[in-house]
């Protein structure tokens, strides 16, 4: 009897020992790696990021899915396809356009300066080629915007078009839904202008809608300039989430209404 019990005890101890070793091994290594990656892959599938060409509504859905379900687990950036930097110097504005890996590429740049007056905006536009003075950069002799306004920079390299909008003393809101075309939480809208490449500012028709006003923006509109009774602000139509280049596990280009954007997704939170 004692011999039998001893054998059962030894066998049980052996099984527990083996099981604990394997459990520790599985828990500490492989499963963690697979699980972390899995979250990014799951997000790509759920948000529809497998597409390489998107509408602004589909891109907005990607951002919405990330914000609602994945913002704690992974990071998301939506940036221009090229690294467009902008600096104000004394008497001049310097614009640089490089790839995110730092390679200078020949490019045509259109920069539009928009001044937002009390009643309606006014604009000045310049077109020039990158690389005339410095590699990947050029400088334009003009005075910067001091009151409310924005710079709209469109870069075209080998037909690859991308943009950056730099607001100056201007409120930026994220209250436009490109799918329903409704500008939410805006009841006292007087006029809306659509910002379209290369440097156009086009009045957009508006009509009352549930929750706000419906704005019929033309294809290619990147942002809306909204004049309300209380003031003026900018709302994204093609939502960007600024970053500083290649980041995360996936760095993928998508084309939204002719604009090339870089979408980066990675573990973070």
């Amino acid at each position: 009897m004692i011999e039998w019990m001893a054998e059962v005890g030894a066998a049980t101890a052996l099984i527990l020992l083996i099981a604990s070793v394997y459990a520790y091994h599985i828990q500490s290594t492989s499963l963690l790696v697979v699980e972390t990656r899995h979250e990014v892959v799951r997000f790509i599938g759920e948000a529809g990021l497998v597409a390489t060409e998107m509408t602004p509504g589909e891109l907005a859905k990607v951002v919405r899915v990330w914000r609602q379900e994945y913002s704690q687990a992974i990071d998301l950036w939506v940036q221009p396809a090229l690294n467009i930097s902008f600096a104000e110097t004394v008497g001049a504005l310097k614009v640089c356009a490089l790839s995110w890996s730092g390679t200078p590429l020949p490019a045509n740049v259109t920069m539009t300066r928009v001044r937002l007056g009390q009643a309606e905006p006014s604009k000045d536009a310049w077109s020039f080629s990158i690389g005339q003075r410095e590699v990947g950069c050029t400088a334009v002799a003009l005075q910067p915007v001091t009151d409310s306004g924005l710079y709209f920079i469109v870069v075209d390299t080998y037909g690859l078009k991308t943009f950056r909008v730099i607001p100056v003393n201007l409120e930026v809101r994220d209250n436009y839904d490109p799918e329903s075309e409704v500008l939410y939480n805006s009841s006292s809208v007087r006029q809306v202008y659509a910002l379209i490449a290369p440097g156009n500012l086009v009045p957009a028709p508006i009509e009352p809608a549930e929750g706000g006003v419906r704005v019929h923006a033309e294809p290619g509109t990147v942002a809306l300039i909204v004049y309300e009774e209380e003031g003026v602000y900018m709302a994204w139509r093609i939502p960007l989430r600024e970053g500083d280049g290649f980041r995360g596990d996936l760095n993928k280009y998508v084309v939204v209404e002719g604009y090339a954007l870089l979408v980066s997704v990675g573990a973070g939170g």
Partner: peptide, 21 residues
């Protein structure tokens, strides 16, 4: 998973080259 991510990146670079004309 790594292959899936690489394939997405490769597809997007190919598509953007085609799109850029």
């Amino acid at each position: 998973n790594d292959y899936f991510l690489l394939r997405e990146e490769a597809r997007s670079v190919a598509a953007i080259l085609a799109e850029s004309r």
